[in-house]
């Protein structure tokens, strides 16, 4: 028996919206410790890793480890039938091939359940080694989204460089070029509005902007985003999910041959 209950159903909607553009089908792996997902986009350039710890749920029961294959667009559509304040419960039998989403209104005067067929998805888990990153930038998530969107008006590739001076985002295209520099800024009143740069060594990497724009669909999940980079490693773009875990996106760089 699997039973996951979340008072803030809206959170689950945001999680699905953050993944469905990048990944179509994925396995939700549930165990006593929580729910996780690891999947690559169809071109294997980006990887998304989601973790929702069991202690972040209002009720979490998972008697047996389960890997439940779902079409993320179908789940996202289904969750759109829930109100943002609805309590969402996921239920699945140990041997069943369906999952039930139950939506309860906050006043408990409306209860809906939607049953969805599970899919058999063959996917292998990749081992993601622990790495010491050369540069880690924490910044407001809306600012990061804005930068990616603004640069995409000029080019389709971004060079992200971290130096002592700050983090520089550069692009070039047919109509011209653009540079946006963000300096460390920790003097603002609210920590979620600050930009913090931890740099061991300067680093400069090139990425396809369209993936970064897909990642920024996670912006509603967190006020801040953390970007970690090292030469010859995929960058990591992490959005924390309050009290529950994270969604991390790994993006392979473009490399000169």
């Amino acid at each position: 028996m699997l039973e996951l209950r979340l008072l803030q159903g809206g959170l689950l909607k945001k999680v699905l919206e953050a993944m469905r553009e990048l990944v179509t089908d994925a396995n939700f792996d549930c165990s006593r410790s929580g729910c996780s997902l690891q999947a690559m986009d169809s071109s294997h350039v980006a990887l998304v890793a989601l973790l929702l710890r069991s202690d972040g749920f209002d009720h979490f029961r998972c008697d047996r480890n389960r890997s439940m294959g779902m079409n993320l667009n179908h789940v996202a559509k289904l969750l759109r039938c829930a109100g943002n304040d609805d309590i969402v419960t996921l239920k699945a039998d140990d041997d069943g091939d369906t999952v039930t989403f139950m939506f309860e209104s906050p006043k408990q005067d409306k209860i809906a359940d939607f049953e969805m067929k599970l899919m058999d998805i063959q996917s292998e888990h990749l081992g993601i080694p622990e790495a010491e990153y050369q540069a880690i930038v924490k910044m407001p998530s809306q600012e990061f989204a804005r930068i990616c969107r603004d640069l995409s008006t000029i080019g389709d590739t971004v060079v992200i460089s971290v130096t002592k001076e700050g983090v520089k985002f550069s692009t070039k295209g047919d109509i011209g070029s653009a540079n946006i520099v963000c300096r460390q800024n920790t003097t603002v009143d609210k920590p979620e509005e600050s930009t913090v740069i931890e740099m061991k060594d300067p680093v400069s990497l090139t990425f396809a902007l369209r993936y970064l724009i897909s990642f920024t669909k996670a912006t509603p999940l967190s006020n801040t985003v953390t970007v970690s980079m090292s030469s010859d490693l995929p960058m990591v773009v992490e959005y924390k999910i309050a009290d529950m875990g994270y969604i991390r996106y790994y993006l392979a760089p473009k490399i000169d041959e």
Partner: peptide
């Protein structure tokens, strides 16, 4: 022109 790498170049199956 820089060439797009894939994730499998960096991470191996478990």
């Amino acid at each position: 022109k820089p060439k797009q790498q894939t994730i499998s170049r960096f991470f191996a199956p478990k």
